[in-house]
Structure formats: structure tokens, C-alpha cells
């Protein structure tokens, strides 16, 4: 593997920083992931069903609609935030012309 021949940056601290920021973002998004599906859709569904919004019992809505929409938004947020993080640490991928891949 030629990767081991790559010069390692003199201070390895950025890697740790980058990884920490990445993990923090990830954990935050996973909390939302859990809350929308397992929380609102399963664990608290009966209590939320007492609230009816636009003909839908709320817990039922989260289980069959809301959680799906939440998932889509979560991945988009992750991709966008990681774009920014990569750029901030200068680890984004670019082709030979410097265009972002």
C-alpha cells in the first residue's frame, strides 16, 4: 500500500480535531434519527396519538411519514456540513484542475 509512503503532516493534531468534529456532528444527527423514529414513532407513539394534526394522529404520522422525511433531511445536512468541515481542514478531494470532486 503506497499510502504508508505518503508524508504524514508534521503535526498530527488536525486529524484528531477533524475526527472529533466529525464524531460530534454524527452523534448529534443520530440523536435526531433516534428521537424521530424510535422515540416519536415507537416509544411515545401512544401518548403522541392523543394529538391529532390534520386528521393524522401524531404518533402514527411520525411512524409512517415524519420519520422518513426526517431521515432524508438528516443525510442532506450531514453531506453539507461535511463539505464545510472538509474544506476547513483542507482535506476535500479535488481533481487535477483543482475542481472539487
Amino acid at each position: 500500500m503506497s499510502e504508508s509512503k505518503q508524508p504524514v503532516a508534521p503535526d498530527d493534531e488536525w486529524r484528531e480535531q477533524y475526527w472529533k468534529r466529525n464524531l460530534r456532528l454524527m452523534v448529534g444527527l443520530l440523536v435526531v434519527w433516534f428521537a424521530a423514529s424510535f422515540g416519536a414513532g415507537i416509544l411515545f407513539v401512544e401518548r403522541l396519538n392523543e394529538i391529532v394534526i390534520g386528521d393524522f394522529p401524531l404518533g402514527f404520522w411520525f411512524a409512517q411519514q415524519g420519520s422518513i422525511y426526517t431521515f432524508v433531511v438528516l443525510i442532506l445536512v450531514y453531506a453539507l456540513r461535511m463539505d464545510r468541515l472538509d474544506e476547513e481542514f483542507g482535506v476535500e478531494e479535488r481533481d487535477a484542475e483543482g475542481k472539487r470532486l
Binding site: A9, R15, D95
Partner: peptide, 23 residues
Amino acid sequence: NMRSPAVARRGGAPAGPTVDQAP
């Protein structure tokens, strides 16, 4: 190495589009 997109860090200058592709 797997944990960040580019193999090595783009050197200090934010505007300079240095090539650092994965092999």
C-alpha cells in the same frame, strides 16, 4: 487514513487548489 477524504492535508493556503488525490 480512511477517516478523512483526502490522503494528505492541503497545505495551509486555503485558496491554493493543491492536488492531493487518492491513489
